[in-house]
């Protein structure tokens, strides 16, 4: 058999064990769902304290961010994430972890060019493309409003 990148990639595929998909997906489902339930609990907690619903939702998100940052600092978030996969990536806690993990890690290169600059090394694109998408949407929304 002639060894080409194509034939080799077939060999590689056969030799590489697959990820445990069923386990990964169910863990992502349960842990991700659990984080959302926790968020819902905070929403009710803040509403119970007399905060309006929409503000309560924002405060719940910030609470989750705080918890994720604390768990990151205590070297725990990555351990949960190893099991949870997308279950800890997709919720806002994953965004918070990506920023705090980078902040902790790059502190060794100083506060300005280390911590300050590299905090956004993973979360940066989320902000860049999220805000850009919102501006594009806003432009369309504004145009439609002018008609």
């Amino acid at each position: 058999m002639e060894l080409t990148p194509q034939t080799y990639s077939q060999l590689v595929k056969e030799a590489s064990p697959p990820s445990p998909h069923a386990k990964n997906i169910s863990m992502a489902f349960f842990i991700g769902g659990g984080i959302c339930v926790l968020g819902q609990a905070f929403i009710y907690l803040y509403m119970g304290l007399g905060v309006p619903k929409e503000t309560a939702s924002g405060m719940a998100s910030i609470t989750l961010v705080l918890l994720a940052v604390i768990l990151t600092g205590l070297n725990t978030y990555d351990r949960i994430a190893k099991v949870a996969g997308a279950g800890t990536l997709v919720p806002i806690t994953g965004f918070a972890n990506s920023m705090s993990a980078a902040a902790l890690d790059f502190k060794s290169e100083g506060f300005i060019l280390g911590l300050g600059a590299k905090m956004f090394i993973i979360a940066g694109p989320v902000i860049v493309y999220g805000i850009s998408a919102s501006i594009l949407y806003g432009f369309v929304y504004w145009l439609l409003g002018q008609l």
């Binding site: 590489s16 064990p17 697959p18 990820s19 445990p20 990964n24 990151t72 600092g73 070297n75 978030y77 990555d78 949960i80 994430a81 190893k82 949870a84 996969g85 800890t88 990536l89 994953g94 972890n97 990506s98 705090s100 993990a101 980078a102 902790l104 890690d105 790059f106 090394i121 993973i122």
Partner: peptide, 17 residues
């Protein structure tokens, strides 16, 4: 990890390979 992958405390999953 720092040079080639992610910060140490970043929550990522590694494939079996």
């Amino acid at each position: 990890e720092r040079q080639f992958r992610y910060p140490l405390e970043y929550g990522g999953q590694r494939p079996p390979t």
